[in-house]
């Protein structure tokens, strides 16, 4: 697997940042933030991944040293689960705000919103 998957994760992160920085449509910006979020979650899962590793459950009679050598690291997975839940909260808030923006300005275009002001 090597380095390729990390490069791809980084590319995903850059795509997300590009969308946030360059796009003017509120919905596209939201999608950009989601892509960044996915890239980070993917990265965290990769940190704990081990090629051919087993589930981190200590079998009966299995020596602890062997377990530590073969099992994948469960902690990043716990972090990712937490991070996914936080991501859900952020998504909900972003979408709620997008709806309120639409109600107030009747547009999703940030340039247009800036022009309408007050």
């Amino acid at each position: 697997m090597g380095i390729t998957i990390y490069v791809l994760t980084f590319a995903l992160l850059l795509i997300g940042i590009y969308a946030v920085v360059a796009k003017k449509n509120v919905v596209k910006i939201i999608v950009g933030v989601l892509v960044i979020d996915y890239a980070v979650n993917l990265f965290l899962v990769l940190v704990g991944y081990r090629t051919g590793g087993g589930a981190p459950i200590l079998a009966e009679g299995q020596p602890v040293t062997e377990f530590a050598r073969t099992a994948v690291d469960p902690l990043p997975q716990a972090m990712v689960l937490t991070s996914i839940v936080i991501g859900l909260g952020i998504t909900a808030l972003m979408v709620a705000m997008a709806i309120r923006l639409w109600e107030n300005y009747r547009t999703f275009d940030m340039n247009e919103i800036r022009r309408l002001r007050g």
Partner: peptide, 12 residues
Amino acid sequence: RRALTAAFRYLI
């Protein structure tokens, strides 16, 4: 209503 835009940019 500009509070919304301010909050949205802050959120992002």
